Structures are given as structure tokens and as C-alpha cells.
Computed example of a mutant assay.
Amino acid sequence: MKKMLFAALAISAFAAPAFANLQLAQKNNCTACHAVDKKVVGPAYKDVAKKYAGDKAAEAKLVAKVKAGGAGVWGAVPMPPNAQVSDADVKTLVKWVLSLK
């Protein structure tokens, strides 16, 4: 019984931050165009993580792109600027996206 409780607590400790970040993405309307594991209008978050894996400047590039918008990297459909999203939320979301496998 103790082992099962410990396992459940361990799983929830890892799942809670991911769920919170997905909720943050939903709150800021990111999920209108993106999903974790499939292309919607924009690329899947996991594809973004894969593309920028190993790029030490990726976080700064993506924070700027989320705030200012961009086009051409993932196709013809532009990403609109998201200046209304707080800097703290953008940084949290970008770190989360880059952490996905």
C-alpha cells in the first residue's frame, strides 16, 4: 500500500508542472493554434522542441518570436504577435515547450 501511494505521489509531482503549463498555454490562447503532439495551425510543441534542441539561443529566440510574432519558419501561415502575454508567462511557456521530448 505504501509503495502504491509513493508511486502515485511521485507521478503527480512530475505531471503537475506539465499540466500547469498546459493550462497556462490554454489561458493565453496558445492552444488555438498549437498542440503538444500534433500540428494544428502552427507546429506541435514537440516539433518545436526537436527543431531547437541543442540551440543555446533557442529560449531567447522563441521568447522574442512569441512576443513579436513571426513567419516563414514553419510555413506560410504567420504567428501573430502576443504582446498581451506577460513576459513571465512567455518565458515559462517557452521553457516548457523546449523541455518536451
Rank of each mutant, 00 (worst) to 15 (best):
K51T: 14
K2W: 11
D89M: 10
G69M: 00
L93M: 15
V41W: 00
K39A: 07
A53W: 00
A18I: 15
E59V: 09
H34G: 03
G42R: 08
A10M: 10
L22Y: 13
V94E: 07
Q84I: 03
L100Q: 13
E59M: 04
V97W: 00
A60L: 04
V97P: 04
K61W: 02
V94N: 10
V66F: 01
Q84T: 12
V85L: 02
W96I: 08
K51A: 15
A32M: 13
A57H: 06
V40R: 06
T31V: 15
A53V: 00
G42S: 10
V41C: 07
A88G: 11
K2L: 14
L9Y: 02
Y45K: 11
S12F: 09
V63Q: 01
M1I: 03
V40P: 00
L24P: 01
P17Q: 03
K61Y: 03
V85W: 03
K101L: 05
A64K: 14
E59T: 08
V40Q: 05
V73G: 04
C33L: 01
N21V: 03
K56F: 00
V97C: 09
I11P: 00
K67G: 03
A57G: 09
H34S: 08
A35T: 06
A13Q: 02
L9M: 11
A53S: 13
L9H: 04
G72R: 13
A32N: 13
A68W: 07
K67F: 00
A88Y: 00
T31K: 07
Y45H: 09
V97M: 09
S12C: 14
N28D: 07
D89W: 06
V48A: 08
W96C: 08
L98G: 08
K39Y: 08
Q26T: 11
A58L: 06
A60Q: 11
L22D: 12
K91L: 12
A10N: 03
N28F: 06
P43A: 14
A76E: 12
S12V: 10
A7S: 07
A83D: 13
K51E: 08
P81Q: 10
S86G: 15
Q84K: 15
K46E: 10
A68L: 03
K27A: 15
L24K: 09
A53N: 10
S99A: 14
G75M: 10
G69P: 01
S99Q: 11
L100E: 01
F14P: 04
A32C: 08
A58W: 07
A44H: 05
K38M: 11
W96Y: 15
S99F: 08
K61N: 02
V41Q: 05
Q84Y: 13
K2I: 04
K67I: 05
G42M: 08
A35G: 11
K67E: 01
F14C: 15
K56S: 13
A20M: 08
N29G: 05
E59I: 09
L9I: 07
N28P: 00
A76M: 13
A76G: 15
